[in-house]
Amino acid sequence: MELVCPAGSLPALEAAIDNGADAVYIGFSDETNARNFGGLNFNDKNALRALERIRNRGRKLYVAINTYAKPDSFTRWQAAVDRAAGLNADAVILADIGLMGYAQRRHPDLALHLSVQASATSAPALEFYRQQFGIRRAVLPRVLSLKQVQQLTAASCVELEVFGFGSLCIMAEGRCHLSSYITGESPNKNGVCSPAKAVEWRKVANELETRLNGVLIDRFADHENAGYPTLCKGRFIVDGKRQHALEEPTSLNSMALLPELKAAGIKAIKLEGRQRSPAYVSQVVRTWREAIDQVLQHGDDFLVKDRWQETLAKNSEGKQTTLGAYDRPWQ
């Protein structure tokens, strides 16, 4: 099982390598990737440095170009694929079929991974991407239960990668327009959910208010933890009740399922968090490296250590970590 780790910067990439990543995924600093945040990601100079460090240590580099290309700037997305191919990246992670067609024709040797943003959840959907574009691996959306993941792995024609840890996106990725409904910008079109320029944090009386394009998302009392200002994690009024109507700020942690995922034939575990610091990457990657090694060596005797749980809990968005959709009662 391959451990696929996030890096939004060169130090984060080094932290991932140093702590045992098998592969690191990065993005270019523009709207071609789904973490299009100011100051994050790689320009050409840093991408080259990244590649050099990856090669020196015998790891793999994946480049996420996982937003949907716009017609009038299609060449920008094409150029991103060309840059990744030029770097000799081990794979590009794509979501847009227009771009997949281009990558396949122009760079037939470049491995294509299907991004979670493409939201493929069934064997025929995976077969579509394999037949049409020759994808070798797909990242599954965080909407399937463990049983569904097992069934899909058995029926799949390509390698499957699943999310192990990170901030939890509760909607089917790539099929959520909540952000653009309020702010005009969305993951699919702009590579951002709740763009920072639309976010406002303000202290009002004893509460911390957060707004998105003027719309009140939540109010936190002094003792309450905060989350990312995304719409799905706000507190709203439904039927007169103030509640986390969609989801609380929560992180996904599927570590306890590692033996089952391995037995099912899952080929890779992905950690979320290209927007996080090298400190997060070090701690989370080291923890997952130890856990995966434990599963590989001891198989069924695997137990999640308290120490791992503490480290992951500390780095989580929200206090708790849950299995998310893997666990039916969550749904």
Binding site: K70, I97, Y102, A118, A120, P124, A125, E127, F128, N188
Partner: peptide, 27 residues
């Protein structure tokens, strides 16, 4: 979704794509 696209194209049937299929460019 793409499952239906795959099943329909395998059967060589014409189809329409609904608004939740991610089509954002001419390609």
């Amino acid at each position: 979704d793409m499952s239906a696209v795959q099943l329909l194209s395998e059967a060589r049937l014409p189809f329409t794509c609904g608004p939740a299929v991610n089509i954002y460019n001419h390609k």
